[in-house]
Design a protein around this nucleic acid. Sequence first.
RNA 1: GGUGGGUUGGCGAAGUGGUAACGCUGCGGUCUGCAAAACCGCCACUCGUGAGUUCGAAUCUCACACCCACCUCCA
Length: 492
Amino acid sequence: MTLELYNTLTRRKQPFEPLEAGKISIYCCGVTVYDYCHLGHGRAYIVWDTVRRYLMWRGFEVRYVQNFTDIDDKILNRAKAEGSTMQEVSERFIQAYFEDMERLNILKADDYPRATHTLDGITRLIHELEQKQMAYAAGGDVYFAVRHDQDYGKLSGRRLDDMQAGASGRVEADPDGPKKKDPFDFALWKAAKPGEPAWESPWGSGRPGWHIECSAMVRDRFGDTIDIHVGGADLIFPHHENEIAQSESATGKPLANYWMHNGMVNVDGEKMSKSLGNFTTIRQLLDAPNAPDPMAIRLFVLQGHYRKPIDFTAESILSAKNSWERLKEGLLFGYKFGQQLGWTDTSDASFGNPAAMRIPAESEAVQRFQTAMDDDINSPGALAALFELAKDLRREGNIITHEGKTNADPQMLRQQWQTLVVLAQVLGLEAKPQPEAASELSDAEIERQIEQRRTAKAAKNFAESDRIRDQLKAAGIVLIDKPGGITEWHRG
RNA sequence: GGUGGGUUGGCGAAGUGGUAACGCUGCGGUCUGCAAAACCGCCACUCGUGAGUUCGAAUCUCACACCCACCUCCA
């Protein structure tokens, strides 16, 4: 089977071939750290984390680098508003970023370069562009001359002459306008304004523009060309277009062989964004009363294809919550029933650890999973394979709970369970057994209450028998009335 | 105006030529004092509209309609 990925640059799916056999370099555009991450950011990083995990599972050695933009007007504005500094603000939101992403089970990048730590690379790059006549200084600023770049627009599929300068309605707000030779030229370096953080450079004191940091970081960390560059679809233009312009004008080589972009999170059919004010931060979502499990959020994201928009609604989150409960039951199967099935290693430290599991690669579930994921990361298709495994396990688990045994082969169940755990983990979906909620009720006490209820039922005093049933339910004890007046029970 | 994407059951969502995965919701049955849980089963003769190609199309072609994103804040 071959892995195919959709490449924004060529506008089609292409078989994936890394620069160096077995190794993959990925650069992901990170956040500007001036506020908490919202669900839109969450989706992006869940998607790229999943791509990374999948490529690792596929046997590649993946090096994954993601930046923090810690020099920016919005950070400065926030610092001013708070009477603090740009560094304090960015430091705080970098920490918040890590907390939020950890909750979503997003693996740490191999490296997190920051704009403030990349000034040398940035000024070097600008200097080269200037020498190649691709950039010009103007009043302490330096701009990239888009008209000098023959390829400009190739990623976003635009031609300069077709574009409407200012179509986004924000051009009036651009104070650099008059210094530019062309409205589409963009800043590589901005002259310092009084009272703002600034760095020395050949063009005077100032700070880097937004796009240049990514070009410099890729070069610093990987060299001229990387395998895959990823980010939100809203970055295609101008951010990634400008990265390509800068990097490729300087090096004469492709910046990235594959460009992948995730779709947006919509709210009521419109993009979630700061400016529309329709955003929900990850912590708001996860800390709300009756909040979804972070894994439900992952599921919510992965149930849609990464390139399409997904709609964030109360209903879609509820659906994801319920779906996750299903999957979780399957994932916990081994912990709950392994011992009863006679598995001998349930108390080993490595029990349940996907890294220690060997699963048959030729099984139908694995094949379906891989076929789906190989097809441009079709996670909804991959999930279908997981749900089918989970459905079987859930049924067997229920049979054991209700009948005390199952006729299914314990080793086959084990294999199914392990397959589910391993594949779910590739999607970053993991469930750990909760430490048994220590019910204050002893077994004997529960049996005594059930006996009381039996007596009440025999006397047709159903009000009393229902009261006892509700009371036990509130304590986490579920009663199962079976034919013949037998009542079984289990916790939670 | 330019560019890209979308339109599949009540909701979400896969599916690029062979007759509609999967999840949620809902419904029916068994069981029950009634429930719950569980188990069994059901829910798109149809894929935005119209035409065409083909033995055969959700899938290809051409029109049309509607929706969304981007066009220097953006994941």
